[in-house]
Design a protein around this nucleic acid. Structure first.
Lengths: 364, 364
DNA sequence: ATTATCATTGAGACCGGTCTCAATCAATAA
DNA sequence: TTATTGATTGAGACCGGTCTCAATGATAAT
């Protein structure tokens, strides 16, 4: 407690009421913009408010109304520009509907995600938008839902949790990206993704607890199967959660006696690291290695060559998820919606037929 | 408990008190973790709280304590990765000190900045961090300060407003960057910056209302003067506030009969756009044009050639500004501090001597 | 003139915590 | 044994809004 510190005493409705010579209730009516007040009184109160420089205390307002006007957003990694755009989409939509956004970062760690949710609930946010970092432990999400607060999932669906969800067509997108590579003649393709799992080697889908990751792997495998690739030639690498981990995975992959001739990256942060490793090894894109990444990050247009990408409409994703939440907040009652936003592939210059797919490549 | 009424009735201290068979005051003491309570009672209350799944209402708590535990941050443009890192630095520091962050975007527009500040004050944030978008109209900032809420300025100082401020050594950084170019033989250099001003032509410093912009221009001009450049050959271009504007400015610049042989960009968003325009025109970097940009954005390492940058320690900037604010929040009384964080220049491959500085260059 | 009707305004409870101050009770001191 | 002290606990005000309901006064209807 600060005794010496002069407490900031802000102007309250009571102060304005006194100044205007009306009751607190009446002043509150004009200041809070509800109920009916005569024009004359309204003018008096407004004048008094201006004179005293009254600023409503949203906290107090929230307490009685039960509404805070805040939407809580828990996202995996704000530094990832995919989330950056999504958050921007959320913020813009929220603001134009009169809501504010409070943002938390989970660093893709379930414990931080849980902590963030707890804090946000404590702040009495009106609703939440979450990108669940894994689908095994979702007790905290169930709890949000049970508490009656609307929840919308962003980018990742939870199979056995039926709640509003907005994702992209991950499976289809991965399949199409892979088909571009197989059509080009690639027979040994790696898919590098960031799911957090001990051990980077993929064994089976049972390990994958994040829907988007699982769906992409399914799409990838489907395309590989259609093209008749050997199971041993579809290289699925998990655990690219940090730049270092990604570099290690890429290094290991390219050091094999039979390295892949093409790589698909599950996000642009991973792709950037792959690009660096590849160049450091003196390999050329696309001659020595083809590369496709999810998310049309800005840097993908200025590399030489520019990178072929799966364009996920991140901003629209954010917009959509916010709209869904706000509609619920406004009382819309309907069964949970699962919206799938389509992606498209932007072909640039990072895909070419493999030079010689059976021998390891060295710098020519 | 909640019968047919869908209203979310959360568990309160009174409920816990009743369940535990103690008074509201006592339950509040253990739940709020203040005052003294016997171990036995503490156990009972905790058990009751657990049983009822009590969650404190931070809103109510904030109302009585006057502290919300929230830091408000108003930043120019979150999509700019410089601010992204800074915000991350702020968030991390805030969280580890037990504060939350509520983020607002001003889009570098003074009116949006004012609105954001108003909302944040309404939410009763404990303190604010702002990157002022201009220095002419700072009534809203003065007001924050007057209301007794700590305010720290990020990245931009306000000359006649003495408040905690964290910036980088803009003038020195700009001067050093320019010196690299002049030392290399460049005699006609452009500096492109984002300050929002009608008309892209620079006239005099009187137009510049943002300290960091002004300081950089001063540093730029100092270096130009030292190298003996003609005043007409230091091309200062204002108004690169959108990708399109930046492209137009760059185009105009490169279409001159005597185009610059080197460009300095005031941030990486601008530089990215310059890079695109330059490549589209078929010009080569660094042979035809040298380029240096502020902020070590990730893409600057993967272009061909990689870009020489002024490395602003954005994360540390964020950390520092948050620390300063938190110390104030904890009651530290001291005169306003102006902290200047040093930058460094990372030389990569985008600077080379001009081919022929007196004739316009075309694609060779 | 008297009563019903409608529009305004005022009094005060309430939201869910914090915090002050008085009351209670056991233990220690006189 | 009685007074004093210290440790706990309880009652209730308070924060700054919202909101219900009763009171007031003017106008319209009978």
């Amino acid at each position: 407690m600060n005794s010496s510190n002069p407490r900031i005493h802000s102007v309250t409705v009571a102060d304005v009421a006194r100044e205007a010579g009306v009751s607190k209730a009446t002043a509150a009516r004009v200041l809070g913009n509800y109920g009916v007040v005569s024009e004359k009184i309204r003018g008096d109160v407004l004048a008094a408010a201006k004179q005293l420089d009254y600023r409503p205390n949203e906290l107090a307002r929230s307490m009685t109304t039960g509404r805070s006007g805040i939407i809580g957003v828990v996202v995996g990694d704000i530094e990832n520009s995919f989330f950056g755009y999504a958050v921007r989409g959320i913020s813009d939509t929220a603001r134009s509907a009169g809501f504010n956004v409070i943002l938390a970062n989970s660093s893709e760690q379930i414990e931080m995600e849980k902590a963030a949710v707890r804090v946000l609930i404590g702040k009495r946010v009106d609703g939440l938008i979450v990108t669940p970092s894994e689908s095994r432990d979702i007790s905290h999400l169930r709890e949000i839902h049970r508490s009656g607060r609307p929840l919308v999932l962003l980018d990742r669906a939870l199979p056995d949790f039926d709640v509003d969800t907005v994702t992209v067509d991950d499976s289809k997108a991965a399949q199409r990206a892979t088909e571009i590579l197989t059509a080009c003649g690639h027979r040994r393709i790696a898919y590098i993704t960031a799911v957090d799992f001990a051990g980077h080697e993929y064994k089976d889908l049972g390990q994958i607890y994040t829907s988007s990751v699982r769906e992409r792997i399914e799409g990838f495998m489907t395309a590989c199967d259609i093209a008749g690739l050997l199971p041993s030639d579809r290289l699925i690498m998990l655990g690219a959660t940090t730049p270092q981990a990604t570099a290690d995975i890429t290094d290991k992959l390219l050091s094999r006696s039979n390295p892949p001739t093409a790589i698909i990256a599950s996000d642009s942060v991973i792709a950037l690291e792959i690009f660096k490793v590849v160049r450091q090894r003196g390999l050329r894109i696309p001659e020595d290695l083809s590369l496709i990444t999810f998310h049309d990050a800005d840097w993908t247009t200025v590399t030489s060559p520019p990178i072929t990408v799966v364009d996920q409409p991140a901003y629209i994703l954010g917009q959509t998820v916010a709209e869904l939440l706000i509609r619920r907040l406004k009382g819309e009652a309907r069964p949970p919606a699962r919206i799938i936003v389509p992606t498209s592939i932007i072909e640039r210059g990072s895909v070419a037929p493999p030079l010689d797919q059976d021998k390891p490549r060295t710098r020519s």
